Amino acid sequence: MRPPFDPTLYLVTDTGLSRPRPVADVVRAAVAGGVTAVQVRDKTASRRELLELTRTVQTALADRPDVAVIVNDAVDVALIAGADGVHVGQDDLPPAEVRALLGPGRLVGFSVSSVDELDVALAQPAGTLDLVGIGPVWATPTKPDAGNALRPDGVRALAAAARAGGLTTVAIGGIDATRAAEVAATGVDGLCVVSAVCVAPDPAAAARALRTAIEQGRVAA
């Protein structure tokens, strides 16, 4: 059975943006403020360092089994750490191969930024994917190679098609508390944020503001 996964407010970690605070401290505070899932991402880390980072995040959330901890890209790290899943991009390992390695009991997410890429996701064998990350909504310095901005209308169209195919959806890219309601109103199941929480002086307060905006957007949808 796959672990619980609430995509409402999905934090993607950034070690550099969190400094001088440890990532685990930012994660702990953000979850206290309303973050519902965490993806451990550090593109500059070695596999050993990523494993250590994943374990520190898991330890920080030991009392929150309802908050899934997902590893970006590194299937080996996720398996060794016993993480709840893996998120892969278009240029990473094929989703079906990732599912074969992870087995049925973990989550697999996949990034899409266009109709063609969503078609790849929808063509996967049944049970391969749990989630698609749709973006970038707006251009973002945390992922400069993410492709052209979809803006909310583009997200809405992709989210509807993904939902019709049975996939959970989250939007990512340039989202902060001033934009969260607009994105939440597109019909996605959740919002992914990086800098909106990682650079915030008070990650808990930042998460609370995002959750409030998400609820406002859902009511307006």
Rank of each mutant, 00 (worst) to 15 (best):
M1G: 15
M1D: 15
R2F: 01
R2P: 11
R2T: 12
P3H: 09
P3M: 09
P4F: 12
P4N: 10
P4S: 11
P7L: 12
T8S: 10
T8Q: 07
L11R: 01
T13F: 06
T15E: 14
G16Q: 12
L17P: 11
S18W: 03
S18R: 05
R21M: 10
A24L: 08
A24G: 06
R28K: 14
R28E: 12
A30S: 11
A32V: 09
G33E: 05
G33W: 04
T36H: 05
T36A: 00
V38I: 10
K43D: 09
K43I: 04
T44N: 15
A45T: 08
A45R: 06
A45G: 04
S46I: 09
R48L: 15
T54I: 02
V57Q: 02
T59L: 14
T59D: 15
T59M: 08
T59C: 09
T59K: 15
L61C: 09
D63H: 10
D63Y: 04
R64D: 07
R64S: 04
V71M: 02
N72D: 10
N72Y: 00
D73L: 00
A74W: 06
V75T: 07
D76R: 00
D76K: 03
L79K: 00
A83L: 02
G85R: 08
V86K: 01
Q90A: 14
D91N: 12
L93M: 12
A96D: 06
V98S: 05
R99H: 00
R99G: 00
A100I: 04
A100P: 06
F110G: 11
S113A: 15
S113D: 15
S113C: 15
S114R: 13
D119L: 12
L122E: 05
L122R: 02
P125F: 03
G127D: 06
T128N: 03
L131Q: 08
L131A: 11
G133W: 15
G133R: 09
I134C: 14
I134A: 11
V137N: 06
T140C: 10
D145N: 14
N148F: 13
N148L: 14
L150V: 14
L150S: 13
D153A: 12
L158S: 13
L158D: 12
A159M: 07
A159I: 08
A160D: 09
A161L: 13
A162E: 01
G165F: 02
V170T: 11
A171C: 14
G173Q: 05
G174C: 09
R179N: 01
E182R: 05
E182N: 07
T186M: 13
V188I: 10
V188Y: 02
D189S: 10
L191R: 00
L191F: 02
C192N: 11
C192M: 12
V193H: 03
V193P: 07
A196P: 03
V197R: 01
C198R: 07
P201Y: 11
P203L: 03
P203R: 03
A205Y: 05
A205M: 07
A207T: 06
L210I: 03
R211K: 13
T212N: 15
A213Q: 04
A213W: 01
I214D: 01
Q216M: 12
R218H: 06
V219L: 14
V219Q: 09
V219G: 11
A220K: 14
